[in-house]
């Protein structure tokens, strides 16, 4: 779903200053291709730092999709109607699929699936902080679709033009499928706000109150605290800055909230005529850092659930491998 953590890492893999003449030439050719708006494919030469940045970003994105299945999976068996249950199942299945597209894109850079999983399961890899919040009521399902998927789409659309082609292709597929995620969420909330009881309307407002701030944190730290952003922009990995995306999301969401009949929990949120944009209150970045570092409401639970699913599935993977080996031996005999 998204990759905020890349911005919080220090520039730990800064390009080396000592390079061979050949490497300098390759680097120049690479830069020229980036400047010309060319796409880079898996087997093309690329700077090591570009490769590492992409592996980190794409794998974080993949992990976010996979972990993102958990908060919603929590409500599949308790969806209020068969229709809502079918919708939620389809959405969670999509997220599994999106994770797979992204893992495949990351693997083209030379990191194996097992290495990627290992990084997630051991807690070394990051995923989007948003999935470490609990889903307490049915209204959380609609709110996640509306706000969380809305923010994710805002973030993901520019990545469809990422300079690394396998990532861009995966993103095009994901964006095409994800629009339904946001629309179903908004429609679910609208149904409750239009036809629901007072208690149900209050439930929607409560969900919006809890998800609003974590959603706008999804765009990552402000630009002046995002040290790697400039390099990612230079390389065409990132196309639009965190603050710009956050502002676009807020501006788009205010009118949707009005239509829905909910308030957004920010007393400082107001239209600024001069900027032709909404001003908004200060974001609590200490919370963001805490959740990202592993100390959010559900970090341990999410990771434990993911590791358990992987370990419990081991016998299936082993049996399928054993069966495949047996068939191969039979054919050879």
């Amino acid at each position: 779903m998204y990759t905020q953590a890349m911005d919080t890492r220090a520039a730990d893999e800064a390009p080396k200053s000592l390079r061979s003449a050949e490497e300098v030439q390759l680097q120049e050719r690479f830069d020229a291709r980036i400047d010309a708006g060319d796409f880079i494919e898996a087997k093309d030469w690329m700077p090591e730092h570009y490769r590492k940045t992409l592996v980190r970003q794409i794998s974080q994105h993949a992990h976010s999709e996979i972990v993102g299945m958990l908060p919603e999976g929590n409500w599949i068996s308790r969806a209020p109607t068969l229709k809502r249950k079918a919708i939620l199942l389809a959405k969670v299945q999509d997220e599994g699929g999106h994770g797979l597209y992204l893992y495949a894109a990351a693997e083209t850079l030379g990191t194996s699936r097992d290495q990627l999983f290992d990084a997630l399961h051991s807690g070394r890899a990051k995923y989007s902080s948003i999935f470490n919040y609990p889903t307490l009521t049915w209204a959380d399902m609609g709110t996640i679709g509306w706000l969380v998927d809305g923010a994710a789409i805002m973030n993901q659309v520019p990545i469809c033009r990422c300079s690394y082609a396998p990532y861009a292709r995966a993103m095009i597929r994901i964006c095409r499928e994800e629009s339904f995620h946001q629309r179903q969420g908004f429609e679910a909330l609208l149904t409750m706000m239009t036809h629901g009881t007072e208690a149900q309307k209050a439930m929607v407002q409560d969900a919006v109150n809890r998800w609003w701030w974590p959603s706008i944190m999804m765009f990552g730290p402000p630009d002046d605290a995002s040290p790697n952003s400039a390099q990612s922009m230079r390389w065409g990995i990132k196309r639009v800055s965190n603050d710009e995306l956050r502002q676009r999301f807020i501006d788009a969401t205010v009118d949707q909230a009005k239509l829905l009949g909910v308030t957004l929990p920010d007393p400082d949120l107001k239209w600024n005529e001069a900027r032709q944009s909404h001003d908004f209150g200060a974001i609590d970045w200490s919370e963001f850092k805490r959740v990202l570092a592993g100390d959010g409401p559900c970090n341990r639970e999410r990771l434990a659930a993911r590791v358990k699913a992987w370990d419990d599935g081991a016998w299936v993977r082993e049996a399928a491998t054993a069966h495949a080996n047996k068939q191969t031996m039979k054919e050879a005999a």
Partner: peptide, 24 residues
């Protein structure tokens, strides 16, 4: 060509490809 996936054998690869790449 639409992508790639991991699978133990050809039969599973086809079934998984259906789930991963043709949900719509």
């Amino acid at each position: 060509h639409c992508g790639s996936l991991h699978a133990a054998d050809p039969k599973l690869a086809i079934q998984m490809a259906r789930d991963v790449y043709t949900r719509r």
